[in-house]
Design a protein around this nucleic acid. Structure first.
Lengths: 340, 340
DNA sequence: TTAAAAATAGAAAAGGTTTTCTACGTTTGG
DNA sequence: CCAAACGTAGAAAACCTTTTCTATTTTTAA
């Protein structure tokens, strides 16, 4: 049913080689007259070159795959924007896979991706990243690489793979030091998954900052959950219930921070008057227009991460497995922190 | 470089036809012994069938494309989840295109999509939907359909195209009637784009509800913006500044509602004690854990919309252009509305 | 004006599958 | 024991392009 290049060739009374040359304007030039005839025929027949045949002959691969933990999480959707928009600019298509934290789903994705023969695969921060899944992921990554597919992780994965990321230790450290600089000494930490590498890094940074300023780390001021506002809310409740004195909370993720704000507020306390809160990520661009005080947070260059990953994949140079590119983050002050 | 079916055939000492039959287990069966030999060879050589060649021979198309206005908007990310997950379940790949409200970008997408030869294209609510872009979109849709590509819109588009959606008039009507049933008589409307069809529908529903209960519609209680929390915030400010008495606000989108809550709260008023607010959409599953009161909102079956669209595209029956499937919405009560 | 060089277009191969068709060998029924 | 039916595997065609190679025509230079 679909019209092929031979239909066009017949219609225009030329060879298929000529048609190909005209529609791609490639190879040596075609006489203007013929050229026009071909163009007319193509238009008349509404010819669209068959993608698969093109891909086969040109030895093309299938673009870029991005794997994230949860497509609905603004944390990842900014990355996704960076990836898809940059891909499109290069006339390449990016496909997004969202694992929904479901390992079975994720494995199914990887099997599919292996079969799809992508130019590159971008492992969004946290797609895996938990220690126990590391070996499985590593095996898959090696297979992809063997296949000629470029892999880039947006967070350290616990094995050698090219990484474009931020320095999460520094993130935790700076956020905590920011609070310290505002006079806070009793600073709690509300984090995410226990075995999540990046979260561990932020926590290390938090501890380093405390140590650097001769504050003692108190494990009772540390609670972990699942990066959700609900988790932040509940852990903050536990923290406040414990009645351990706290004047500030560093949250390793903005969702957690929002949950904490809600919890604090509900108890009749105010942010930042009674408790200061710093988040991590800086998504919710509308932050200051959403209930509660605008959140002070360590902003990540999500879009840029995605953009860079694509450029790297599409670039000419090989990407060694020890490739590291670390982007800057910055604390954007809003109204959830006060000077003590 | 990549290992092909002929390599496997040679390695196993059989014909390529046999290899193909084994790896796909299709056609008549192959002797167990041979079969095993082929399987072993394929494994040993790490054979992965070339996607493009398969696609060419099998006359496959390239899966499903979903076009949304903004990938980072939770409104669309739930749809995206429904689409991509359902697609994967059917061993098909869905690709998401986010126009970022940029018409030029959007046109580039459509050109690309036209070339990609998808099985189906899903037009996410509002990808276009503005009146003035309608004809351009219509032309593209017709071209896609001619190409054998199935098109489904998740919102009315102003021309004949299969639609799976909700009844937006009913949405606006029910939300307003809900407020009326709580004793409110002075109800404002904060909406989105002026020329956005679905928003117009919700507004009609709002007006219908007023009329039905013999309340007069006052155009000074109606403000439009761009579906953002910021827009909601600013319009709510205008509304309150106007000092027109209002006890409740219906917002045609949850972002707007959050902005409105923020604005009300900042002025020392309380939601719902002083002003009740109803939103539309029901995204932000974490709503009740984010600052401000949990939002009462008309929940849309976003996931289901995406899921259904994919099923329909992958189904056997033809989809006539007057196909309509309208899903139910429901008001989920939270704590942003009080009984007057 | 003719030989050589350059420009242009067609023929055909190649890319890697799937699948039909054909051939061969084995079984079954008379 | 032979013919027919069946089961299995290989050969080859088909899917649609792109691109190399070849042939032809046109231009250039002598």
């Amino acid at each position: 049913m679909p019209v092929s290049i031979v239909d066009v060739a017949k219609h225009a009374g030329v060879s298929i080689a000529t048609v190909s040359r005209v529609v791609n304007d490639t190879g040596y030039p075609v006489t203007p007259a013929l050229r026009q005839k071909v163009l007319d025929s193509a238009k008349a027949l509404n010819f669209i070159p068959n993608r698969s045949a093109q891909a086969l002959r040109r030895r093309m691969r299938n673009g870029i795959a991005l794997i994230v933990r949860n497509i609905s999480d603004p944390y990842f959707s900014e990355i996704e924007r960076g990836v898809t928009e940059t891909a499109i600019k290069n006339d390449i298509i990016a496909t997004v896979f969202s694992s929904m934290q479901d390992t079975e789903f994720e494995m199914k994705y990887y099997q599919l991706i292996l079969k799809q023969q992508y130019d590159g695969v971008i492992i969004g921060a946290g797609a895996y990243g938990r220690k126990k899944s590391t070996e499985r992921l590593q095996a898959i990554v090696r297979e992809l690489q063997q296949q000629g597919c470029r892999v880039i992780a947006l967070a350290p994965q616990g094995f050698e793979v090219p990484v474009i990321s931020v320095d999460n230790v520094l993130v935790g450290k700076r956020a905590t030091e920011f609070l310290i600089s505002k006079g806070h000494r009793d600073i709690a930490f509300l984090g995410g998954y226990r075995d999540h590498l990046v979260d561990g890094d932020r926590f290390s940074g938090y501890q380093q900052a405390l140590a650097l300023h001769e504050l003692v780390y108190d494990s009772q001021k540390m609670y972990l959950s699942d990066y959700s506002a609900k988790g932040g809310y509940e852990n903050c409740a536990k923290l406040l219930d414990s009645e351990i004195p706290v004047s500030a909370i560093y949250c390793s993720n903005d969702h957690i921070a929002y949950g904490a704000i809600k919890c604090v507020t509900e108890r009749g306390l105010k942010v930042p008057e009674d408790i200061s809160i710093v988040g991590t990520g800086g998504f919710y661009s509308d932050s200051e227009y959403i209930g509660g005080p605008g959140l002070t947070s360590v902003h990540f260059p999500f879009y840029r991460l995605g953009e860079l990953a694509v450029s790297k994949i599409l670039g000419d140079d090989e990407i060694p497995n020890d490739y590291r590119e670390i982007l800057e983050t910055k604390i954007v002050e809003n109204s959830s922190v006060r000077m003590l």
